[in-house]
Design a binder for these strands. Structure first.
Lengths: 129, 129
DNA sequence: CGGTATCCGATAGGATACTG
DNA sequence: CAGTATCCTATCGGATACCG
């Protein structure tokens, strides 16, 4: 039985790892907003900064580097003066769309569910009063 | 044109909110492991504690409360002595399975992609040496 | 058994100033 | 323009002790 439990555990880990990978790639306050901003076409640092409302240069810089390391964003530098840097989504980032759609759909469904629960609780409170 | 930009922004926010909701529900180091543990059937606090490797009582308690508030986990108390508390997944949590599957699939795909990029970089380094 | 209370270090992220 | 450096706060999560 010990063997069985260990097997169950390692199976869990194997299942969990790719899910964690995916969540980690999307996690953080600004990654999604940045990705969405870039879906409208390639943009320069300053443009993204203006379109993603509230992001600081520091965070934008950091998150863009993260996304680039994950192969979702391409950084291109033009050696003009001043330097012009443009960011764009990679082909690989296309594969994210299904995931994002799944998250969005569930997010909407979930909100409905919470409202439903809420109104059920309300009616219980009402009937108790 | 200002109007257009504002419209674009609010549309982004509308798209982003449910995605963030979904991500927030799954976020945290222990939520997924706990959910997976409970897919094998309803379990007691101590059982989950043992099966989810490395989690502390504090975190388990907190995350279970979070999951319950989000309507994904049901907490049932039996008034025996000592008290027996069992946790189980709700019907609503079933709807998560598609999302988790999407995340897992993409996580696996993404790992392949990173390996591919890596080997491409390697061959560039090799050809440069 | 099923937690809570307290403390602590690590990390995420914001504000501001500065640079090639 | 496209960032970096520095500092600061808040939240996350671990360790340990305790409780009904």
């Amino acid at each position: 039985m010990k063997k069985q439990e260990e097997k169950e555990h390692s199976e869990c880990m194997g299942i969990l790892r790719p899910i964690r990978d995916a969540l980690d790639v999307l996690n953080g306050k600004w990654k999604l907003p940045i990705i969405v901003a870039l879906t409208f076409g390639e943009k320069r640092f300053g443009e993204i900064s203006r379109e993603v409302n509230g992001v600081t240069d520091r965070m934008l810089s950091k998150e863009l580097r993260d996304l680039e390391l994950n192969g979702l964003v391409k950084r291109r530098v033009e050696n003009t003066y001043p330097v012009k840097v443009t960011y764009s989504l990679t082909p690989h980032s296309e594969s994210l769309k299904t995931v994002i759609a799944a998250l969005r759909d569930w997010g909407l469904l979930h909100r409905q569910e919470l409202l439903k629960e809420c109104s059920e609780k309300d009616s219980i409170v009402e009937s108790a009063s």
